[in-house]
Each structure stands twice: as C-alpha cells, then as structure tokens.
Simulated assay, not measured.
Amino acid sequence: MSPCQQCGACCASYRVDFSVHELDEQGGRVPSGLAVEVNDTLCRMRGTDHARPRCAALTGTIGQKVACGIYEWRPNPCHELEAGSDACGRARARHGLLALPLPH
C-alpha cells in the first residue's frame, strides 16, 4: 500500500484549483459535480476551500486509511504533489503526522 493510501493529509490541507477544461462537461475527466466555479477559467475541488479543507472525493480517516473516489480522474494539481515533498511534509505536520522520506 502506498503511503498516500494511509495518509490523505494533502487532500485535507490544500485548496485545489484547476482549469475548467479538466471538467468532464468541458471534455476533461474531473466530475463536474465535485467542482465549484471560481471564475471563467478556474474551478476548485469541492470542500478544499473550507476553513478546514477536505476534498469531497476523499474517503476514510487521515493518517490511517484513505482513498480518492476519483483517483483516475483527479485534476492536475493532485498529480503534481509527491509523497515526501515539502508540500507533503507540511500537510502531514498539519495533521500531526511525521514527514515521509524525501522522494528519490
């Protein structure tokens, strides 16, 4: 099991903005029902703009066992975050989890 499947901290720490062209109704793959409009060119994953962010596609318990309900269709910012990166470490710290080893 990947460390991300036990963690989920990034999915409950950051706002996730992405191009409207990634939405399924625009020819992309991200389910439109899980996004909110920001402006004409950007949208945001539902739940990630709350005071205590948590992506609407995330299931499970942070730090124990989690899953992304749209893993195959998640937006580009989700593809870009690497396990063990600085952003990963900051997200894990927010949830009281130890940092992962740096990626190779």
Rank of each mutant, 00 (worst) to 15 (best):
P77E: 00
D86Y: 07
H50Y: 05
I70D: 02
I70R: 04
F18Q: 01
Q6I: 05
R92L: 04
A9N: 13
H79G: 00
C11L: 13
Q26D: 11
R74C: 04
V20F: 03
H104I: 09
L23V: 13
E37C: 08
H79Q: 03
E25R: 15
I70A: 03
G47Y: 06
A57S: 15
A91H: 12
Y71N: 05
W73D: 07
R90E: 06
Q6F: 08
E82W: 00
P31S: 15
D86L: 14
C4V: 02
G47K: 07
Y14T: 04
G63E: 05
G33R: 14
E82T: 00
L102A: 15
G8W: 01
A35Q: 04
R90G: 00
H79F: 01
A83F: 01
S19L: 14
C43Y: 02
D40S: 13
E25Y: 13
R52P: 00
L100W: 14
C7H: 04
N39V: 10
A67H: 09
L100E: 14
H50E: 11
H95I: 08
P77L: 00
T61P: 01
T61K: 09
C68F: 07
R29A: 15
C11D: 13
L98H: 07
E72P: 05
A56D: 08
P53N: 01
V20H: 04
T61A: 06
G47L: 10
H95E: 10
L81V: 09
L100N: 12
L102M: 13
I70G: 03
C43L: 06
L58R: 01
E22Y: 07
R46K: 15
L81D: 00
C68D: 09
P3W: 07
A35M: 03
R92V: 01
T59S: 12
G8N: 04
T48H: 09
E37Y: 04
L42T: 04
P31G: 15
T41R: 11
P101F: 06
C11I: 11
T41G: 02
G60T: 10
V30I: 10
H50R: 13
G89E: 12
K65S: 02
A91F: 11
I62S: 10
K65M: 00
D24C: 14
A83D: 01
D17V: 02
A83R: 01
D24T: 14
N76E: 08
G63I: 03
G28K: 09
C43V: 13
C11Q: 13
V16M: 08
S2C: 07
A56W: 05
G47T: 08
L81K: 01
P101K: 13
G28D: 09
R90C: 01
A87G: 05
R92D: 02
R44D: 07
L42F: 01
H104T: 13
P75Y: 00
C55M: 02
G47A: 10
I70F: 04
E22N: 08
R74I: 04
C4Q: 02
L34H: 12
A35Y: 03
D24K: 14
S13Y: 07
G63R: 05
R15V: 15
G27Y: 11
E37H: 10
H95W: 12
A9L: 12
G28I: 12
N76L: 04
C88Y: 08
R29L: 15
D86C: 06
K65C: 00
R46Y: 05
L98R: 07
A67Q: 10
P53D: 02
A12M: 12
R52E: 12
R94L: 15
E72Q: 14
V16Q: 02
A83G: 02
S85N: 06
M1K: 02
I62D: 09
